[in-house]
Design a protein around this nucleic acid. Sequence first.
DNA 1: AGCCAGGACGGAT
DNA 2: ATCCGTCCTGGC
Length: 323
Amino acid sequence: MKKTKKLQKICELGLEAVPPFNFKYTVYKPSHFPTKLEDFDEVSESMYRTFRLSQDKLVGLKMVDLQKARGKDGIMTEIFSNRTLTEQDLQRIRSHINHAYGLNEDVKSFYKAVADDLSIQGPIKNLRGMRVSCFENLFEILNISSMLQNTTVKRSEQMMENMLSTFGRKVVYDGRQLYVFYTPQDIVASSEQKLRDLKVGYRAKFIMDIAKHFSTNIDLADRLKTKDFDEAKEELMEIRGVGPYSARIALFQYLRRPNEINFDSWKRKIFSKLFFGNDDKPVEKVEKEAKQRWGDLMGYAGLYIIEDLFVRNPEMQYWRKKK
DNA sequence: AGCCAGGACGGAT
DNA sequence: ATCCGTCCTGGC
């Protein structure tokens, strides 16, 4: 077990976003299950989040609304690290945040495209300026997808906690204790049996396969970013352990393609009820209706509806029976 | 105690 | 192309 690393404050960075920008619900998604990779402080409205520049160069961020600091749309972040950071390191952090929260994306074009659909105007009004958030890199989001698949949220949480406490790096900064995500190398150096002992079940094999894949395909993520939708999906699903469900999560969150959404068991029910008044419609019917309403923006539309539902019904966060 | 849900795979058709 | 049994664990 590695020692907890103390991170020292290095500097501050202001990043502007294309307006309109909703700081809170871009950095914090009520529908996402909690992990010790990040911590949103409701009182000060600041997001604590870890990041890794290299195997031993660890970073902690404390992000607040740039409106509060400078009266502009965007993110103000304090940067903490266990090392001194170069100008190039700071540039990498800057571009990571930009990509993670889509600061340069124009959400207005989405609002315009769905202006005729009444069912989504409420969520847009409540969450105006919200973007997709994906602070994870491709390896990390595929790990999270693996632990979400075929189980309940409660177990996903337990698997993540076990994996992070075993393979992640524990850091402390600004009075918070968090983990930095483990790397493909950390997993490859372990064993399938060790993973099984962490209660990830049959996923142990998949997680090991994904780690091996990423430790030998270093440029995979950058390559996928340049590919068109179908090619990217195909290449993702060539990774053993990555099927349609995980590929959709990676495409929607990491690759930021607005057309993807998984109508898994709990979302199927929510959208069935929204579209048809009761929650018993089959997934094919729900998918068809979503496509008809929102076309290639159905993923983005789904995001607004789901997050709005969670904001208005906080008790949904403690809904742990089924996925 | 036994049975089922929930993705991905691989083999059979 | 589609269908089915299997993997694993926690909950019913």
